[in-house]
């Protein structure tokens, strides 16, 4: 059987991604003194809860007030309440850290909630593990916030001893502040 050289015309099946329409990324551009810094955790990730607790301690030490918020659901009544809580939290803080992106959907929602904070014209830093960095940046771009600040942490964080997580919290704290735009 010989291959035919005839050509046919078909229609391309892929969608053109929406225009980039990248929103500006906000930065704090101030010292921590008198600022309220939010820390968004997810009930799923104990490693990030511990790191966020450490950062809260550091932030308070450095003059900020901290405001934690924890999410649990993506859909249903719980999901609606979580997104409402993120919206309210975004109004109250001057900027915040949002994590943790260490799975597919939790990275998507980490970016989603970071974008909510940015939409309130507050600086957000999405905290993700290295395995999910490209996914986080893709999702930020798909949501029109390609310049969103992303702090990349080691992967995996789960199953590490608490002492090691505290060390990681200490090690990454200066980078976290720099991405938020904290001035000394």
């Amino acid at each position: 059987m010989s291959a035919t050289s005839d050509l046919i015309t078909i229609r391309r099946p892929t969608a053109v991604p929406p225009p980039a329409n990248q929103a500006p990324a906000f930065t704090l551009d101030a010292s921590l003194a008198g600022k309220t810094i939010g820390l968004r955790t997810d009930m799923a990730w104990r490693s990030w809860q511990l790191i966020a607790e450490e950062w809260a301690r550091f932030l308070e030490r450095d003059g900020a007030t901290t405001l934690p918020v924890e999410t649990m659901s993506q859909v249903g009544k719980g999901g609606h309440e979580d997104r409402t809580r993120i919206d309210t939290w975004s109004e109250k803080v001057d900027g915040g850290f949002v994590g943790l992106g260490t799975c597919g959907s939790c990275t998507s929602f980490t970016i989603h909630d970071s974008v909510t904070l940015e939409q309130h014209e507050k600086p957000a830093v999405a905290v993700v593990c290295s395995e999910f960095e490209s996914h986080a940046r893709n999702m930020a771009r798909f949501l029109g916030h390609g310049d969103l600040k992303v702090l990349v942490m080691p992967y995996p964080l789960e199953a590490r001893p608490d002492d090691e997580l505290r060390q990681i919290a200490l090690e990454y704290y200066p980078q976290a502040l720099a991405l938020l735009g904290v001035q000394s």
Binding site: I8, T9, R12, T14
Partner: peptide, 26 residues
């Protein structure tokens, strides 16, 4: 009236299959 981009491909089934894989359409 169709508005999606038109693409010329081979009418040969095996060549078309190879092209669809190359383009990651399937």
């Amino acid at each position: 009236v169709l508005t999606s981009e038109q693409v010329e491909v081979s009418a040969d089934p095996e060549a078309w299959h190879a092209r669809s894989i190359e383009e990651r359409w399937g």
